[in-house]
């Protein structure tokens, strides 16, 4: 495997390089990309974002921005992330191996746009926004914010425009009433997910509000399950509602049969995951849904 490899030090340099060779592919950790290129034999030039300090780190101002080049290990190690975004942490804990998490980046996981990207479903339920910048932009200029639900367009395809680089992932500070959780299954732990699911909701006096549910590996893109959310909205998350919502969720996804599992099994998992993710999210705060034993 041979390729021209550039490693710029600043975002500006990277954008200039990208303008010079528009067929170049951006790489960060490379844990997905290099495996794909080895299989496909692709030899086009690579621009590595690893050396760009401004893409790294977790920055707090009025909201939280995770630099796109922040490694998954750095996110796992952040006390702030552990406390405020447990579903994201749970998804990273089971992503790849220590070695992979040490180099893989959050931005890379999203830009690779795998339907099974483990961090996508949690970021969807946290309402993440993605900041993308093109040449001449830097922090001030040609940047725009994309809602994460508008980011994924298909397997391997995102709404990033030519010349745009993902700068960071923006998250709202969570309210103290936010409950969230994540469920996933692979054939073994270190595997692309057969299915995954994340939930987040405000737990307000025994009622769930602003319920968000998203699932991975069950559609061409990480999928927000709006019908399921509606079923759960303003309910006490009692077992009967959960069962109904689980049925809706299983119907709302559109999985395929592949080497890892059948579509039917994926639907069953989604139903189980919905119930479990909600229960676990409440139990983490010593709470239970209405009417649960």
């Amino acid at each position: 495997m041979q390729a021209d490899y550039h490693q710029p030090d600043t975002l500006e340099e990277a954008q200039a390089l990208l303008a010079e060779c528009p067929d170049a592919v951006l790489t960060a950790g490379g844990t997905d990309l290099l495996v794909q290129r080895r299989a496909s034999g692709a030899q086009g030039p690579l621009i590595s974002l690893r050396g760009i300090a401004e893409l790294r780190g977790i920055h707090e101002s009025h909201d939280l921005m995770i630099g796109a080049g922040t490694t998954l290990t750095e996110i796992l190690d952040s006390a702030r992330m552990q406390g405020d975004y447990p579903a994201l942490i749970q998804s990273i804990e089971v992503l790849g191996s220590h070695q992979i998490r040490n180099v893989a980046t959050l931005g890379g996981n999203l830009c690779n746009a795998s339907p099974g990207a483990d961090t996508a479903a949690p970021l969807i339920v946290y309402g993440a926004r993605l900041k993308a910048c093109s040449a001449g932009g830097g922090d001030s200029g040609a940047c725009r914010t994309i809602a994460i639900t508008d980011f994924f367009e298909g397997p391997g395809r995102t709404s990033l425009r030519p010349g745009e680089i993902l700068r960071g992932i923006l998250l709202d500070p969570p309210s103290p009433r936010l409950r969230s959780g994540f469920q996933r299954l692979g054939r073994i732990q270190m595997d692309i997910a057969i299915a995954s699911l994340a939930v987040a909701f405000e737990w307000d006096g025994g009622q769930a509000r602003q319920v968000r549910v998203a699932a991975g590996s069950v559609a061409p893109v990480p999928l927000r399950l709006q019908a399921t959310e509606e079923m759960l909205e303003a309910t006490a998350l009692d077992p009967e509602t959960l069962n109904k919502a689980a049925t809706v969720a299983a119907a709302e996804v559109s999985p395929i049969d592949d080497i890892r599992a059948s579509a039917a099994y994926r639907r069953e998992l989604i139903a189980v995951f919905l119930r479990r993710a909600i229960r676990a999210a409440l139990e983490a705060h010593g709470e239970a849904g209405g009417g649960t034993a």
Binding site: V35, A39, S97, R187, I188, Q189, M190, D191, I192, I259, R260
Partner: peptide, 27 residues
């Protein structure tokens, strides 16, 4: 629990560790 070389009309469809799983330290 995990291993199987899958074939479709004689062609092996999971010829890599991405698609063919053996137990790791986790399992």
């Amino acid at each position: 629990l995990y291993e199987e070389v899958k074939m479709q009309e004689g062609r092996i469809t999971n010829p890599s560790f991405t698609d063919y799983k053996i137990p790791t330290a986790h399992e």
